[in-house]
Amino acid sequence: MTLAGLSLRDLEYVVAVAELRHFGRAAERCAVSQPSLSAQIRKLEETLGLALFERTSRKVLLTPRGEPIVAQARVVLDEARRLMALADGSDGRLTGRLRLAAIHTLGPYLFPHILPPLRSIWPDLTLILSEGRTDALLEELRDGRIDAVLLALPVESDGLVAEPLFFEPFLLAHPIGHRLCGTPDLLLGDLDAGELLLLEEGHCLRDQALAACGLTARGGGVHATGLETLRHMVAAGAGCTLMPLLATRGVDGSTAGVGGLVEYRPFDGGKPPGRVVGLVWRASDPRDRGLRELADLLRRGTPAGTEPLLSQKVD
């Protein structure tokens, strides 16, 4: 086997199929026809002398021998991007493509705020946005499948750079006519744990809500799969919940109230419950300078009602 049988483009094809588990969608991402992509992957498999994928009529799976090959392909592609960054004179600035992800409870509400300034300052930067849960996104980040993540800090940052951006308070979301509607000076102690609605396990916001209310993880009860379902459960009168500030309003500042059925109220009594939102990327990324510039931009343009943060403010 010689290096002449390998190409970076073929490795991009392999990684795309491994991530999307679909040859057609992988071909669309790589801007190539599906027959061409399939043929090149077959050729690469012949060169390597092994099958990378298990192909069925329903899905595409990585073979056991294919998993380490794809992992190493990501490393090779990452190093190739590092080489190009050094060669094009960008000096670590953001150029080309940036794969930016966010946790489910943040992305839909923060992306509309940050896209206009990003497009204005880096018009030639190609943004690829995605969402997921914290653990899965950090795994994708470490594997090189994404470049940076917007999530709640702190996180295990071995090999990563974690820059805090802002503190986002939680508001109480309760249905109109709820017993707390007329309560002055709302405190966390006013909540009834039995009526607290939560996201299902695996969402960091669930753990943050439980911690804010001084509760331990609990099973049973009714849980929502996403923040919008949680909001509608509140509107239906099923209970109340802690809602991140950005999720309570539109980009224009209007209230996301599900037809006026949900009321949002801030907590009194000192610092409100909330979360620290930060930007995380690999410490080895050659665009460290540009990613720090991105963090500074996001910090300076924090949405109304949030508090910009400096690094030393995160424990």
Rank of each mutant, 00 (worst) to 15 (best):
T95I: 13
P108S: 04
R119Q: 04
L94R: 02
P112Y: 05
D91L: 15
G89V: 14
L118R: 01
R99C: 10
R119A: 07
L83T: 15
G107H: 05
G89A: 09
A102R: 00
S90Q: 06
R99K: 11
D124A: 06
L83N: 10
L52D: 06
K43Q: 14
P116E: 06
P68Y: 11
K59A: 15
D78F: 14
T47A: 13
Q72M: 13
Q72A: 11
L48K: 08
L83M: 15
E67K: 09
L61I: 13
I103E: 14
I114T: 03
E54S: 13
V76M: 13
R99A: 07
I69C: 14
G92M: 03
H104A: 09
R42L: 13
L48D: 06
I114R: 01
L98R: 01
P117V: 14
R42Y: 07
I121F: 15
G92E: 01
G107A: 14
E54P: 07
K59G: 05
A85V: 15
R97M: 06
D88C: 11
F111V: 14
K43M: 08
K59F: 07
R55M: 02
W122N: 00
L86W: 11
M84L: 15
S57F: 10
D78P: 01
L100H: 00
F111L: 13
L110G: 02
L115S: 13
A87P: 09
L100F: 04
P108K: 03
T56N: 06
L50W: 06
D91F: 05
P68W: 07
L86K: 10
A102Y: 05
G107M: 01
L48Q: 09
E79P: 04
L100I: 07
Y109A: 06
S90K: 00
T95V: 15
G92Q: 00
D88G: 13
L110I: 11
R81F: 15
T47W: 12
G66W: 04
A101Y: 05
P116A: 01
L61N: 12
L48I: 13
S90R: 03
A102M: 02
P68V: 04
D88W: 12
L106E: 05
A73Q: 04
G107V: 10
L86N: 13
P116R: 04
P68K: 03
R58E: 11
V70N: 04
V60N: 06
I114A: 08
P117W: 10
M84V: 15
Y109D: 07
L115T: 13
Q72G: 08
A80E: 15
A73P: 06
P116N: 03
P112T: 11
P64T: 03
G49L: 09
F111R: 07
D88H: 02
F53C: 05
E45R: 01
L52P: 12
D91P: 01
P116D: 02
K59E: 14
R119T: 08
T105P: 03
L83S: 12
R55L: 13
G89D: 11
D88F: 12
P64K: 00
L94F: 04
T95S: 06
T63F: 01
I121H: 10
L77P: 03
V70K: 00
P123D: 00
L118H: 11
P123V: 11
L52A: 02
R58Q: 12
P123Y: 02
L94H: 00
A73C: 11
P116M: 08
T63S: 08
L61V: 15
T105Y: 02
